[in-house]
Design a protein around this nucleic acid. Structure first.
Ligand SMILES: [Mn+2]
Ligand SMILES: [Mn+2]
Ligand SMILES: [Mn+2]
Ligand SMILES: [Mn+2]
Lengths: 231, 231
DNA sequence: AATATTTTTTAGACAAGACTAAAAATGTTT
DNA sequence: AAACATTTTTAGTCTTGTCTAAAAAATATT
């Protein structure tokens, strides 16, 4: 008796949308840690359940994009890393496109980019790249991987780690939620602006800074989510 | 005992990708015929099986986008027509974008547009529309529905129906397969060019025409797939 | 009118991707 | 080392969208 196997995916797409989302989540979680990425961490990132994650990582291990040993968490293989980086590349290039060409604000782009990152066409994304003049960073200051999935990491530190009288340039956000971005807009804080630390309050870790030639006080929560490039 | 119902779709997307493809197929098939669209016709258009179509049209009928009576074929409701037209609008606007802004040839755009048409964001598609200067036709000469899903149909006839000495402008293709479009490129036939019928051959229904100030003979198969606007 | 053919529907199955609940493994305290 | 807590896996179920095979209805042909 022969078992019939149905193939419900298109042949030109190596990975399903769901598989791509898992790869991307594991990629992001894996950048910081040197250990394997835990099932629970992936579940949390994707707002799904640990049992669903176990199912999926088994499948991805079969496809050789990650290494999985029971109870040991997962690690992306080189192929997995590249695949994930190319999805991140698409996500960030689309974000730049939406801001630069379609009048989106930086707090409106993420959800649309989450959809657009799954479009399969290398010509499409390379032409978008060219149209934008090969940008190196997305609207939130995150670096854009190149066509091979290589990422050029830049030296940056959180505003909260700067000492009094230190200066730098605001180059990115750690939290890129719409509410934080809208808050920055309201405070007229934008990427590219020069920052100088004037005072630090030990009591609540708030800081007084000069930014955009304006003096203002920011809470620790803000200072902990703004990336500064030291000069 | 309580039955648990799982909701596996996102709340902001009314229809799944698959449902959208069915709606679009029924929309295209329904334009010509005054009767209902048959199960088999839909199956053929979507390269699927009649049984799958029956399942899906029941579901779409429950969602009030079409009317279904067993064995009678289906007809889109007003809501269904509008939904389908807005997907067609997205497909065609993306095709224009790819050709006008990203250096795609008209034979390369369809497959990518098939993916892009499912992106959910009204701001996105309206901004693309504006960026392109609110085009009325796609690269194949097909009309682009407006934001309400209304379509402005234009008077056109197939080249094969023109008589000797009649003239017109080449405004569209009926067959928009890559092979036909590439053939037209090779013959240097493009939309917008003026056409005059010089001779018609009864034997094989071929025609001699003057197009782009060049005299050439085209087979009936060609003449049957080129739309002409009478002057 | 009866029979044959085609179309459509139903019934039952499968794969992907999700869930819950329970079992098993690992980690942390005492 | 044993008990407790947490994490991870397994087992079983569900939905969506597909399939094949067979039954039923509608059409076409004799
Ligand atoms: Mn983003
Ligand atoms: Mn970003
Ligand atoms: Mn098309
Ligand atoms: Mn087209």
């Amino acid at each position: 008796m022969q078992k019939i196997i149905y193939l419900h995916y298109k042949f030109d797409s190596m990975f399903s949308q769901s598989e791509e989302n898992y790869l991307k989540a594991i990629y992001h979680l894996g950048i910081t840690s040197v250990n394997g990425v835990s099932t629970n961490a992936i579940a949390k990132k994707l707002s799904t359940k640990a049992s669903s994650v176990t199912d999926m990582i088994k499948k991805l291990a079969d496809k050789n994009v990650l290494i999985y040993k029971k109870y040991q968490g997962v690690k992306l293989t080189e192929e997995g890393k590249k695949t994930a980086a190319l999805i991140v590349r698409k996500h960030r290039l689309w974000e730049v496109f939406l801001v630069e060409k379609l009048n989106f604000n930086w707090d409106e782009v993420h959800d649309v980019a989450e959809q657009l990152e799954h479009i399969k066409s290398s010509k499409l994304i390379n032409e978008i790249d060219a149209l934008l003049g090969f940008p190196k960073f997305d609207p939130h200051g995150d670096p854009i991987p190149d066509t091979n999935g290589n990422l050029h990491l830049i030296e940056k530190k959180l505003l909260s780690t700067l000492h009094i009288n230190e200066t730098g340039i605001c180059i990115g956000v750690k939290d890129s939620s719409a509410s934080f971005l809208q808050f920055l807009d309201k405070q007229q804080i934008a990427l590219g602006q020069e920052v100088e630390v004037l005072e630090k309050e030990d009591f609540d870790d708030s800081m007084t800074i000069k930014i955009n030639d304006k003096k203002m006080t920011v809470s620790n929560k803000i200072a902990n989510n703004l990336y500064i490039q030291k000069q």
